[in-house]
Each structure stands twice: as C-alpha cells, then as structure tokens.
C-alpha cells in the first residue's frame, strides 16, 4: 500500500443515508476473483436514474465522495471499496460508516473520513454550488479544507498511522510472531473431536 498524507481533488455528493454495499455494488457483479474490474458496476442501478450526481459531467474526475450517514452498511463485501477505488475515488467523507466497510477501506487504502453531519451537509452545498471547488482531506492535520474553510475529521491514531506509513497489515502483525506462537503453545486448539 502506498502512504497517503493528503488528497486534494474535486468532490461529488450523494445525498442519501444508509447507502449499503449492495447499492455500491450488487452481489451479482461481485463474481470475480480479482480486485479490479468493478468500476463499471459502481452504483449501477442508481447511475441509470436521471440526475444521479455520478453521471453529471460537472463532477467527472471527482476523487472525493461525500455521502449521508451510515455509508457502507450491510454486506461485508470488500468489492464495494474496490469499485469505489476503481472508479477513481480516494476518499469517502460521511458522518458515520458501516463498521466492516470502514475497516475494508483502511486495509485497501481508501480513506474513510468521519466528519460531523452538519459539516458534511455544508460541504455538499459547497460542491453542488461549484463542482470545481478544490477539497483537501489532510491526514497529517486531520482536517478537511476548502478555500476559506477548515473542519476536523475523526480517525483513530492507529488508522491514521497506517495511512501515513502505508505499511502492509500482515507485516505489521507478523512483528508479533513470537507472541502469536506463545499464545498457540499455551492454548489447546479447537480441533475436530469426532
């Protein structure tokens, strides 16, 4: 994973709450054994609706997605993260994320930035009024900025460090190999008895 210190780009807003991972990518489009090739199925059903922001040329090339509360609830499918990345998103900003989605995002290098709900909606107003507004999500200062505004984002210390270092999670864990082995020696495994 590449280290990420900040992302600057255009943003696009989807003003819906509880956007579950089935909406981000439907299960039938997850029938692949790779981590790529999901972009065309991102929000497939919604993109067919007139006026869906992602289909608006004014927002083409946006790298930051702004969404309503509880983004990424539902199924654990990491394909949702891969599809967002495949499409070009580097950050999702919401007041609340589905637990598993947020964890998947961190592990795949997509930034889940938690911002207070009223700030999210203000940011949505801004980019809807002017899609060219540059938005910066800064993991060093833990802020989201537009020209003239700055708001704090929430992220726990370990997650932030993981982005800043860009280190592989398995490598980090394997530094504790001795402790894992000690645990295994001290505890009987759960094996098949009959």
């Amino acid at each position: 994973m590449k280290p990420i210190t900040s992302v600057t780009g255009r943003a696009v807003a989807i003003r819906r709450t509880n956007i579950d991972t089935d909406q981000i990518i439907a299960a039938r489009h997850c029938l692949r054994t790779t981590r790529t090739g999901f972009a065309e199925h991102l929000f497939a059903a919604w993109r067919a609706e007139p006026g869906f922001p992602l289909s608006d040329p004014a927002h083409a090339g946006a790298t930051i997605l702004l969404a309503g509360a509880n983004f990424g609830s539902g199924s654990s499918r990491e394909h949702a993260v891969w599809a967002l990345q495949d499409h070009g998103f580097a950050v999702v900003v919401a007041s609340r994320f589905g637990d598993i989605f947020a964890d998947n995002a961190v592990r795949s290098g997509l930034v889940p930035a938690v911002l207070a709900e009223d700030e999210v909606s203000r940011l949505m107003d801004t980019v809807e009024a002017d899609p060219a507004t540059p938005v910066t999500v800064d993991l060093v200062t833990l802020t989201v900025r537009t020209p003239g505004t700055e708001s704090p984002i929430r992220m726990d210390a370990d997650t932030r460090q993981r982005f800043l270092d860009g280190r592989d999670g398995i490598d980090v864990t394997l530094q504790h190999e001795a402790a894992i082995r000690a645990y295994e020696l001290a505890h009987a495994p759960m094996t098949r008895a009959s």
Binding site: S76, R77, E78, V81, I100, F101, D103, N104, R107, S108, G169, I170, T173
Partner: peptide, 8 residues
C-alpha cells in the same frame, strides 16, 4: 470481516 482481513 472483509477480504483483506480474511487474508490477514
């Protein structure tokens, strides 16, 4: 968990 955690 998601797929990256499955690998982990």
């Amino acid at each position: 968990i998601g797929t990256s955690q499955v690998e982990h």
